[in-house]
Simulated assay, not measured.
Amino acid sequence: MKIIITGATGFVGKNLTQYLTHKSDKVLPLSIRSGDYQLDNTADAIIHLAGKAHDTKNTSEESTYYQINTELTKVLFNKFLQSDIKDFIFFSSVKAAADTVEGVLTEEVEPNPKTPYGDSKIKAEQYLLSQELPSGKRVIIIRPCMIHGKGNKGNLNLLYKVVKLGIPWVLASYDNRRSFISIDNLNFAIHALLHNAQVASGVYQLADDSAISTNQLITIIAKATHKKPKLVRIPKVMINKLADIGDKFNLPLNSERLQKLTESYVVSNVKIKQALNIDSLPVSAEQGLLQTIKSFQSD
């Protein structure tokens, strides 16, 4: 199978390219920034990974998200519609559906993004799904949750450093749970989608089979670094009071940061597993996280 990939130089792009190549697929990297490009009409699929990632420091212009995540996607999709290529796989995000989650997030939720990043992704999704799809073509929208793996220097790396330095986790009284997706499970799912023509067009979330609490994550990191997990259970009432003080005096721990550190974000992967006719993804949540943490040590 011949597959065009945009964003092939990014973390996911590099890993997916290597995985698909190992599986005997041919990958064609494509840059779409200039807009002056042509699609290889002999390709079987396009995987659109290129995009403007969420800026947690909120320093990016809002218009940049829409220009890259929405408008460039529209241009690429229009070229796909005019081509002989059969499949278009667009990498969106669970943040296109919801910034906060009550219970378990499913594909049936009414999207309500709160950031320019999430809104730009949902607008791209809406455009793809609103276009008339010629017979024989598929459009599959992937909403992954937080992706991790070797070479990814995201939030997991920061938490790894906290544990490695022996700093106690003082928020252990909060029993939150979050979903992750390992790069290994992501690669497996995308390859399976490409090679299973029975999977229908639509929106599919990507997450590991189980959500992990922050306390579990601290324990996994400690296990990987051969340290004893330092989980300190300070009463929530005291923590909340400290956060209130942080609001008033602009301290590192404030109400907003406390919510981000302790909120739950659980994502269902039932729909994609049913579509692929599998009971579970190949790598467990704990195994994947352990592999990622160990890669930080080797780096």
Rank of each mutant, 00 (worst) to 15 (best):
M1K: 08
K2G: 02
K2Y: 06
G7I: 01
T9G: 05
T9M: 01
G13Q: 03
N15V: 03
N15A: 14
T17D: 10
H22S: 14
K23E: 09
S24L: 13
D25S: 15
V27E: 05
P29W: 09
S34L: 14
G35H: 13
D36K: 15
D36M: 06
Y37Q: 06
L39N: 10
L39P: 04
L39H: 15
A43P: 04
L49I: 04
A50V: 12
T56S: 09
T56G: 01
K57D: 11
N58Y: 11
N58S: 13
T59N: 07
S60V: 11
S60M: 10
Y65K: 10
N69I: 00
E71Q: 14
T73I: 02
V75A: 05
V75I: 13
L76I: 10
L76G: 06
N78Q: 11
K79D: 09
L81I: 07
D84M: 10
I85Q: 03
A96C: 12
V101H: 03
E102V: 10
G103A: 01
V109A: 05
P111N: 09
P113M: 08
P116K: 15
P116L: 08
Y117C: 04
S120T: 06
K123W: 04
L128Q: 12
S130C: 00
S130L: 03
Q131R: 10
S135V: 14
S135M: 12
R138S: 11
R138L: 07
I141M: 04
I147K: 01
I147Y: 03
G149H: 00
K150R: 12
N152F: 07
K153F: 07
L156E: 01
N157T: 09
N157W: 14
N157G: 01
L158M: 13
L159H: 01
Y160H: 13
K161D: 12
W169P: 03
V170P: 08
L171I: 11
Y174W: 12
Y174F: 15
D175T: 13
S182G: 15
S182A: 07
I183D: 00
I183K: 04
N187D: 00
A189P: 04
H195A: 08
A197H: 15
Q198C: 05
I212R: 04
I212V: 15
T214Q: 03
T219A: 09
I221E: 02
I221T: 02
A222K: 01
K223G: 10
K223T: 14
K223P: 00
A224S: 08
A224N: 05
H226D: 13
P229D: 06
R233W: 06
N240T: 12
N240H: 15
N240G: 03
D244Y: 14
I245P: 00
I245T: 14
F249T: 14
L251F: 12
L253D: 05
E256M: 12
R257I: 07
L258P: 14
S264D: 06
Y265L: 02
V267N: 02
K271S: 02
I272W: 05
Q274T: 14
N277C: 08
N277H: 15
L281C: 11
P282H: 07
V283C: 05
S284T: 15
A285K: 01
E286S: 13
G288D: 08
K294N: 08
F296D: 07
F296T: 03
F296Q: 07
Q297S: 15
D299I: 14
